[in-house]
């Protein structure tokens, strides 16, 4: 280093910067810090209130606008109950199927190394980035009259499109990756040493899964199941395309809401909606309980 530069460093330490600085008024005081905090919290409260809470309030107010009797009539209407049953069937089937898939797929992708692993993972995610309307369309193009399996199905008298199986298939498609996406990161982070150790000690596949893999991912699994059920319950676009809107036959609750709304029967539409809102809130509550339980469990261990 040159003599001049060395000097510049020495000057730095001999100057008494601190004494001149002490008179500076403190700007970063606690008050401004607190103000920022409350402004930001305020923004969030207003945003969530307008975007999330008000729509729920709209449902509640409009559902009860014509009194309890009208509300009960809409909720216990024959078609509403039928739609509710179909929604439940589609929701349960989709959740079971996707849970089975999610467990096998994440076991495969987290415990084994093979070529094409990344490709497989991104194929599983496809339904997430596809418009639900397209998800419905692909089944019409497969199983419908013009679909390449249409003739085969017709000759065997199997109805998929505009029938219950189509509704279920579309629901499965739209919610396909949900369970997988929740449990895969957890299983992947856990690694595979424990399974390898167990296997070397002679444990069989099912024992390994039940005793070692499963305990690690059970909370994530529950969480994924809840999310999957929520989405399956509310799926609209895909089901709308494939159901044909046959009232009492292929109508799910969300489709029933649409029909009532388009018939200008808004009180009934909101009354049926309120069932779905309640279910959604229940699911959210369950989700939060699961998360909270998982957190406290983690803290204990």
């Amino acid at each position: 280093m040159s003599e001049k530069k060395k000097k510049s460093f020495e000057q730095d330490i001999t100057g008494d910067g601190i004494n001149s600085i002490k008179k500076v008024v403190e700007t970063h005081n606690a008050a401004s810090e607190g103000a920022i905090k409350y402004v930001l919290i305020g923004i969030c409260v207003v945003f969530l209130f307008v975007m999330l809470v008000l729509p729920l309030a709209v449902v509640a107010v409009n559902a009860l606008k014509e009194g309890w009797a009208a509300y009960r009539e809409a909720v216990f209407d024959e078609y509403t109950i039928k739609a509710f049953k179909l929604t439940l069937i589609a929701m349960v089937t989709a959740t079971v199927v996707n849970t089975i898939f999610g467990i096998f797929a994440s076991y495969l992708l987290s415990k084994f190394y093979f070529r094409g692993r990344e490709l497989l993972a991104s194929l599983i995610d496809i339904p997430l980035s596809i418009s639900p309307v397209i998800a419905g369309l692909v089944f019409i193009l497969t199983f419908g009259n013009i679909g390449w399996m249409g003739d085969f199905l017709k000759s065997h008298d199997i109805k998929i499109v505009f029938a219950v199986p189509g509704v279920i298939l579309a629901t499965i498609f739209v919610t396909f990756p949900f369970v997988f996406r929740e449990i895969f990161p957890v299983m992947n982070a856990q690694g595979k040493e424990e399974e390898e150790a167990a296997s070397l000690m002679g444990a069989g596949g099912f024992t390994i899964f039940r005793r070692i893999t499963f305990p690690h991912m059970k909370w994530a699994l529950l969480y994924g199941v809840i999310l999957c059920a929520a989405r399956a319950m509310g799926e609209f676009g895909a089901v709308s395309v494939i159901s044909g809107h046959l009232r009492g036959k292929t109508n799910t609750l969300p489709l029933h809401v649409e029909i009532l709304y388009n018939e200008f029967n808004t009180t009934a539409a909101f009354a049926v909606s309120s069932i779905l809102v309640l279910l959604a809130l229940l699911i959210l509550a369950a989700r939060n309980i699961v998360e909270w339980k998982a957190e406290t469990k983690q803290r204990q261990t």
């Binding site: 999330l52 729509p55 729920l56 709209v58 449902v59 409009n62 999310l227 929520a230 989405r231 319950m233 509310g234 799926e235 609209f236 676009g237 609750l253 969300p254 489709l255 809401v257 649409e258 709304y261 808004t266 539409a269 909101f270 909606s273 779905l276 809102v277 959604a280 809130l281 699911i283 959210l284 989700r287």
Partner: peptide, 13 residues
């Protein structure tokens, strides 16, 4: 909530 609430319900409300 937007994830759990059926889109049709969100739509009309």
């Amino acid at each position: 909530l937007p994830f759990a609430l059926p889109t049709a319900v969100a739509g009309i409300s």
